[in-house]
């Protein structure tokens, strides 16, 4: 029982990270019908930037904010230079373009930061807190709280602000959005920037627990994609739910089966979901009209 509780705590922590990555996925997917395989690189770039800004002497909060800004800039650049020029690209093309972008960003990170593994200090003193026989680190709490606040902020943005609603309008019907005077191009940029910022936030939150290196974004990105599908592609709250579920299933599964198969468990779950209900937990199926 204690063991299960311990797994749940770590599951919820990774799950929160997946949730943020998945949320980033679904924002871009909604705005532009693109599955952004470079999403995981945002996580890596956010964390690595913060690490090196701190090394350069910046204070933690300032480095973190600047890292988020840098990553958002990378997101904007991705939209501007890779997605926008490929206007009428097919699904396969956009998949390959974003895979290319992810490899490119990883290559750039390798050149700038090298192959070493780095960490970030925990946000606050890291004395474990006991809950029965399980322990929880303050940083775990930071991850969960940070995710919760971010998700709520994003939800507020899309539900309540003009710009958020305008982005949603683009996702339903680009032409109609354009006709009612929405600057579709700008909205796409905002979506990519926002999504990159979310990724970097995930990187900042998780690095004090798991460390970071130039290649660490790949798996996180793929897991985020899994989570987005699990929740229902294009459904933002589904993505969050999917992320948390995936984190828990993966951690509990790895705990009881074998930690070496942790990643395999996540992908196995996704295959099952795809075989049984590809539209995910909260997604709706659609039919082609002829």
């Amino acid at each position: 029982m204690d063991q299960l509780l311990q797994f749940l705590i770590s599951g919820l922590t990774v799950g929160s990270i997946y949730a943020l990555v998945a949320l980033g996925f679904s924002i871009i997917y909604n705005a532009s019908d693109v599955v952004n395989f470079a999403q995981g690189e945002f996580v890596m770039i956010g964390a690595m930037s913060a690490i090196f800004l701190m090394k350069a002497g910046l204070s933690y909060p300032f480095a973190a904010l600047l890292a988020i800004a840098i990553t958002a800039g990378v997101g904007l650049a991705l939209e501007k230079f890779a997605i926008e020029p490929a206007k009428n690209a097919t699904v396969v093309s956009t998949i390959i373009i974003t895979i290319g972008a992810s490899i490119f960003l990883r290559g750039a990170a390798l050149l700038i930061w090298g192959k070493e593994i780095y960490g970030l200090p925990p946000f606050t003193s890291n004395n474990p807190i006991k809950i029965g026989n399980a322990t929880i680190l303050p940083q775990n709490l930071w991850v969960m709280m940070g995710t919760a606040v971010t998700v709520l902020a994003v939800k507020y943005f899309f539900d309540r602000t003009r710009m958020g609603k305008a982005i949603l309008a683009c996702s339903y019907n680009k032409k109609a959005a354009y006709l009612v005077g929405i600057d579709v191009k700008k909205m796409l940029l905002v979506a990519y920037g926002l999504s990159a910022a979310l990724g970097s936030a995930a990187g900042l939150l998780v690095t004090p627990i798991t460390f970071m290196s130039y290649g660490a974004g790949v798996m996180l990105g793929l897991k985020g994609f899994c989570a987005a599908i699990l929740g229902g592609m294009g459904n933002s709250m589904g993505a969050v739910l999917g992320g948390i579920l995936l984190g828990i299933v993966e951690t509990v599964g790895a705990g009881f089966i074998s930690s070496g198969y942790k990643d395999a468990i996540a992908f196995f779950v996704i295959l099952l979901v795809l075989f049984v209900k590809p539209s995910g937990i909260l997604g709706k199926g659609e039919t082609e009209r002829v």
Binding site: A86, I96, I99, G100, A101, S102, I103, F104, G107, A108
Partner: peptide, 13 residues
Amino acid sequence: VLVFGLILMVIMI
């Protein structure tokens, strides 16, 4: 790595 990613993007775009 960088060049590889770049080729992929440029060709596809």
